[in-house]
């Protein structure tokens, strides 16, 4: 479309011409550009308060610089270890247990031969994904209640004492992970099912002729096909190791489970917004973002070197 003429045009000239041809496209994409400018790029400008002592009257730009003071304060804080351990443990365990489930579901669903049954299963297992964090937490509080929850009725039925699970520090991680699998595993199969649908049927036919069992077909056709997709998902998940689902932990936190549920995101929320320590918690937020970014680069590089699979 551009530069159809034989002579070379100067850069400003070319730019002006391209605007003439494409101004409608620029106009169509402009709202999105403005949106991201206001809600993503302007907040980046606000990060500077991590290196300042933010005072509301002086504003973001006017507050005095203090260098790395807040970072040092955070690294030396006595709860530093607890926050990092809780956050990492919760996310690593969650990744470990949650990650394989959608793959298993997709492979098993692929073997359901009755097409209407398959569709029904698919439609149903997506439903929990559409339930809000608040309602999910609400269901946990209701079902696990020591006085009126179904779990404790089951315990009493077999002669055990009721337990107030939501106040138990040791129960927090299992509850978080299991409820997370319940909510997201079905939905996360979409990606894997799409990959499996793309398998050339002649592969299965060839395997049938060789007399392969279903299990053998899964092992040598389905699973190898899923590896690149799974690696991709894994790399993206590794970029979230320090930024777990703060929204969910925040509403699952009780005075009883704080020893395990106190994670970085919740700490930033309560200390930052609750106590107004804006600069200090901005520094923690920046630290988390940097680590996450490094993690994603690291896993991407490793995966690229070892399996030639990467995001970029």
């Amino acid at each position: 479309m551009t530069g159809t003429g034989g002579r070379k045009r100067s850069l400003p000239e070319r730019f002006a011409r391209s605007l003439q041809n494409h101004w409608q496209l620029y106009l169509l994409v402009l709202p999105a550009i403005i949106y991201f400018f206001i809600f993503n790029y302007l907040p980046l400008y606000g990060i500077q308060i991590a290196f300042k002592d933010y005072k509301a009257v002086k504003g973001i730009a006017g507050s005095p610089w203090v260098g790395l003071k807040h970072f040092q304060q955070f690294f030396k804080a006595y709860y530093f270890n607890r926050l990092i351990t809780n956050t990492l443990l919760l996310n690593i365990l969650n990744l470990l247990f949650s990650f394989p489930v959608p793959i298993l579901l997709a492979v098993m669903l692929n073997q359901v031969r009755h097409q209407r049954l398959k569709r029904t299963i698919q439609t149903t297992i997506y439903v929990p994904y559409f339930i809000s964090t608040i309602v999910l937490a609400g269901m946990l509080y209701i079902f696990l209640s020591p006085s009126s929850g179904i779990f404790n009725f089951a315990r009493q039925a077999i002669g055990l004492q009721p337990i107030d699970y939501m106040s138990q520090a040791s129960a927090f991680r299992p509850i978080y992970i299991i409820s997370n699998i319940w909510q997201t595993a079905g939905y996360s199969t979409i990606l894997y099912i799409a990959t499996l649908t793309g398998i050339d049927p002649s592969l299965y036919e060839a395997a049938d002729i060789d007399g392969a069992s279903i299990f053998q077909k899964i092992r040598s056709i389905d699973l190898p096909t899923l590896v690149p997709t799974a690696m991709m998902v894994f790399i993206l998940d590794c970029g979230k190791l320090l930024s777990s689902n703060t929204n969910k932990v925040l509403v699952m936190q009780t005075s009883g489970n704080i020893p395990t549920s106190d994670i970085l995101g919740v700490y930033v929320y309560t200390v930052g917004l609750g106590q107004g320590q804006f600069s200090y918690t901005s520094a923690i937020g920046l630290f988390v973002n940097v680590i996450n970014f490094v993690m994603i680069l690291l896993v991407n590089t490793i995966s690229k070197k070892s399996a030639d699979i990467g995001l970029f």
Binding site: F39, N40, L42, P43, L44, Y45, G46, I47, I49, A50, Y54, I60, G265, V268, Y269, G272, L273, F278, T281, S282, G285, L286, V288, N289
Partner: peptide, 10 residues
């Protein structure tokens, strides 16, 4: 991303 607090202040 800016993170919770910088976004909030901006």
């Amino acid at each position: 991303s800016g993170g919770l607090i910088p976004t909030f202040l901006v």
